[in-house]
Nucleic acid binder design. Structure first.
Lengths: 149, 149
DNA sequence: CAATAGTTTAGAATCATTTTAATTATAGTC
DNA sequence: GACTATAATTAAAATGATTCTAAACTATTG
């Protein structure tokens, strides 16, 4: 069984993330914060993914209600963003900058494309009284020999 | 109560769409086809939208099972495409060409951007053994004075 | 017109998500 | 450290979109 341990500086980081999101730093939330923000790079996940990691890595069953509650607060504070993908479940991304994605249709996994890459030109004007909030590109990739849906 | 009537040429068009999708042209399916493909321009909808239109316009309650069945067949045949948007429900589009969208966050409505507009440059290579299937841009717009989610 | 195959439907089942209500934990304050 | 108010956790119920099921119905064919 894995222990739930954090170095002091990491612990402070996660406590800050939680506090600034309006949440008390509880055991459950620190586990979630560690999983999301304790990685080197950016992290893409669904609630189901996260729940599985919590179970496996910490041998701990945090209730779905608490997971959702924590994720919503992080999202509201801007520590997470939702990725638009068709289908019934939400994908979240710890990279909250405006950026683009590859979506692998075979594995259903997302890959970030950093913003220095793609350039989008010639965007028409927004409808009247509206302004553009965000522009994002989804590049769908798949193996040619894979069965398409 | 509205009548369900079609001009002969339109009738044939819808019958063809259904037959070529592997479906028999039944009353229910012809109503659906008329709603989807009987419009001037392109049509964006959710299953819930479509169901409401069926009720209001034709005073007819087609079962959800039949609606889903028909939509799936049209999608499989390529007469409809699914639009990726976060959230729990699927958005469909009768414009099946590769094209881009405005998404109005206030009204939750989609607007097509025809392909002659936006240009996407500098797309990185797909991961190895994968090839690019599709590139789509989502331009999110909103009123500045509207409450953001 | 009987046999067969495809359709429709209501309702049950499922999956992601949200809500509820009771229990438990946290953060001051004394 | 105990006390109290407030917030958090949880299991379980509720919800909403979608899928499945089984029975009744309709169309097509021989």
């Amino acid at each position: 069984m894995n222990q739930f341990t954090l170095k002091m500086e990491d612990f402070k980081k996660h406590v800050d993330k939680l506090r600034s999101s309006g949440l008390r730093p509880t055991k459950q939330r620190l586990m979630i914060s560690k999983i999301l923000f304790g990685q080197k790079g950016t992290f893409h996940f669904t609630i189901n993914n996260l729940n599985k990691i919590l179970k496996k890595k910490f041998n701990s069953k945090v209730s779905l209600a608490s997971i959702y509650n924590t994720i919503h607060a992080f999202k509201k504070k801007g520590y997470l963003k939702v990725i638009a993908l068709e289908g019934n479940k939400s994908y979240y991304d710890t990279n909250t900058s405006s950026h683009h994605h590859f979506y692998d249709e075979d594995t259903e996994k997302l890959i970030d494309i950093n913003n220095s890459g793609i350039v989008v030109n010639n965007i028409p004007n927004a409808p009247s009284n509206k302004s553009i909030k965000n522009v994002e590109v989804m590049v769908r990739v798949a193996s040619d020999n894979y069965n398409q849906k």
